[in-house]
Simulated scan of single mutants.
Amino acid sequence: MESKVSNTGNMNYPRTENSSVTINNVDLKLLRVFKCVVEAGGLTSASHELNIGLAAISKQVSDLEIRLGMTLCSRGREGFELTEYGITVYQATLELFASLNIFRERLHNSRSELLGDLSISVVDNTISDPLSPVTKAVQQLHLAAPKVNIRLQTAHLDDIEKGLNEGRFNCAIAPVYEEKGEFDYYPVYTETSKLYCSSEHPLFILPDSDMTLEQLKQQKIINHTYVSHRHGNKFFAFNESNIQAVQVEAVAMLILTGHFIGYLPAHYAARYLNEKRIRAIGPEAINVSTPFCLIIKKGRKINQIIKLFMDSLGIA
């Protein structure tokens, strides 16, 4: 037998302006599910993360909509999208759980036990960098506070900044091409990128001593659209290139075709370098150094958990 909730879909629920909302344990459970759905980008992804069925998640979101008397999201064939009410409820949910965490921290800190949540976002394709202290820092954090709930997610820089502003991430570790006023930055390490060609490219067999800067400028350069316009390298006219890629892996694929040259982080390129499938070309002067920082939304309270993570990263 289907419940009233299972057929609600994207209905508009009746609301009264003077009605008050009380929060009980069931509501907290529904809000946690709704929060997970929003952060996962939809019901299907959330069902995998929560390890419960899609129909059960859909029913719980509908239950919350009935409970609050408002439509929180559209979730039909056109995809998942929050309504204005949904955005408001999500932001209020973040504030509610943040307050609950503060309450929980105060109770348990009196017993010298650190509890709470830490949501960290890290820019993708950095795990191979030996200079990155992220893995070691998370390891130390867990050893020091094993009951802290750690959520680690990789993302593009634009998504990271958006998540920090929305409160989905407590902090992030990402490259900084320009500092923005809404964030605080704490230097962690520096990533080096070099110019590469593949073993099938004509420059591969050319000795460094015979390679000129003018020759490099004449090659077809890959415009890594996510990075090229940010890192300040004016040697190449990236914007004039019709060869484009978004992810680091896509840049590597294009380099391996033998038709193009492009920049890769040195740590990422090491595997292909060892296999002699690519080589670094050009003088050190055209290498690109990018600072990586711990980024926190300006004005956000640095609680004991974030402070412990900063200590693990070596940030004073």
Rank of each mutant, 00 (worst) to 15 (best):
S228Q: 10
N233H: 07
F238P: 00
S241T: 09
A245L: 00
N239Y: 05
G232D: 09
F238M: 04
H224A: 12
A237W: 10
Y226S: 14
V248M: 00
T225P: 02
H229R: 06
A252E: 05
E240P: 00
N239Q: 11
R230P: 01
F236S: 08
I243F: 06
F236P: 07
N233A: 14
T225L: 11
V246Y: 07
S228M: 06
R230N: 12
V248H: 05
V227A: 11
N242Y: 06
E249F: 00
V227G: 00
S241C: 08
I243Q: 07
V248C: 01
N242P: 00
H231N: 10
Q244A: 08
E240C: 10
V246C: 03
F238W: 05
N233G: 04
N239W: 04
A237I: 07
S228L: 06
H231C: 05
Q244F: 08
V251I: 09
V248L: 00
A237F: 15
N223G: 08
N239S: 15
T225N: 05
V246I: 11
Y226E: 15
H229E: 14
H224F: 04
H231L: 01
K234D: 15
V248W: 01
Q247G: 13
A237N: 14
S241E: 06
N242R: 08
E249W: 00
G232I: 06
R230A: 12
A252C: 09
I243P: 08
I243T: 12
A245F: 07
N242Q: 15
K234C: 12
A245W: 09
E249L: 03
H231A: 06
N233M: 13
N239V: 03
F236Q: 07
F236W: 01
S228A: 15
H231P: 06
V227C: 09
R230T: 04
N223M: 05
H229S: 11
